[in-house]
Computed example of a mutant assay.
Amino acid sequence: MNQQHTILKYDGSFDGFLCCVFAVFEQKLLHPIIRKESEIDQELFTTTEIIVTEHLKAQRVWKSFKTKISKRQHTNLFKAFLSEIKGVENTLLKYIQYIFQQHKTTAINYSNKDILTINQVAKMVGREKHRMEAFVRFQLTKDNIYVATVSPDFNVLPLITSHFKDRYADQKWLIFDTKRNYGIYYNLRIVEIITFDSFTTIDADHYNEKEIDFQKLWNVYYQHVNIESRKNTKLHLQHLPKRYWKYLTEKIDI
């Protein structure tokens, strides 16, 4: 006899995912499957429930979870969620269920396949975070806002927000993820989440008059310090993969 699964649909946010976890424990669901609302259901013998995101419920789950594990582990769970790998929510759910089943806080059991998977995925997301922090290049617009566009493999904007807020606290800036169609905007006070219907790159017509001169100057400087006789293409690509070149002023022909 087939066991009926319950598919929990959520809005794709981390709070929404935590509300799904809340529903699993509250309803004592035996065979839950968590999915984004945008995903299509193809299984037979299932029921579907739409989970409404409620901040208080999400905070209850997150606060309880954090009391049972280290800061590193709950950070890794969040990073793994941001990977957006298909089905990652269900791996995270199994991990959370495992942690809550423990009677007291224990050392992390890396022989558990879900824990191992989460930590491996978190490392991948962490590497992408550091690369975005290193390779993001801003362009000054006529509105005196520094704008950068990115399209990272993983949804790392929530992870790089504090880095750029601290580093560029005296400037208005916007980093827009063209793959996910949202951005983070710092207005000299707070960082806000913004969305646009269509946003790709900054047209040269919108540059501040100083921006093109600066880009040319930087390009000339880069060409002069790039000593041809010492060029090591293999090592260069190892430290600076070609997929990141589109972000770099020194790699753009001006």
Rank of each mutant, 00 (worst) to 15 (best):
S83F: 00
Q59W: 12
V24E: 08
Y185E: 09
D213S: 07
L140N: 10
T249A: 06
V136M: 04
D11A: 00
T233W: 07
F25C: 10
K104H: 13
K113Y: 10
R180Y: 04
N155I: 03
I193P: 02
Q4K: 09
N112K: 00
D197M: 02
L157F: 01
A148T: 07
S162R: 08
N76R: 07
I160D: 13
T195D: 11
A107C: 06
T105F: 00
I50W: 15
S162H: 13
F100A: 03
D213G: 01
I145M: 08
A80Q: 00
P158K: 00
I190T: 15
E26Y: 10
T149E: 14
H74M: 05
R72G: 12
A204H: 13
T161M: 11
V21M: 08
A58Q: 04
D41V: 15
D11N: 07
T106P: 12
T195F: 02
F154D: 01
A23M: 11
L44Q: 14
E49T: 13
L237N: 13
F164P: 12
L93P: 08
N119H: 05
T200G: 03
F138Y: 08
Y98V: 09
S64M: 08
N208A: 11
L44N: 15
L157M: 00
M124G: 02
E133R: 03
D143K: 11
K86N: 14
W62V: 08
P158G: 03
T161P: 03
V150Y: 07
D41W: 09
L157S: 00
E209N: 12
I227P: 08
F100S: 04
K165S: 02
F17N: 04
H163G: 05
L77N: 05
K71H: 14
N112R: 09
R137G: 01
K123S: 10
T249L: 05
D253C: 10
I184C: 11
L116G: 00
L157D: 03
A204M: 11
Q42N: 13
S229Y: 01
Q4P: 01
Y222I: 09
T117C: 13
D205A: 03
K179W: 02
V225S: 04
Y182P: 02
S70V: 05
N187D: 15
H224L: 06
I118K: 02
T48G: 08
F164L: 01
K129I: 14
K66R: 04
N76K: 04
F214C: 06
F17P: 07
E84F: 01
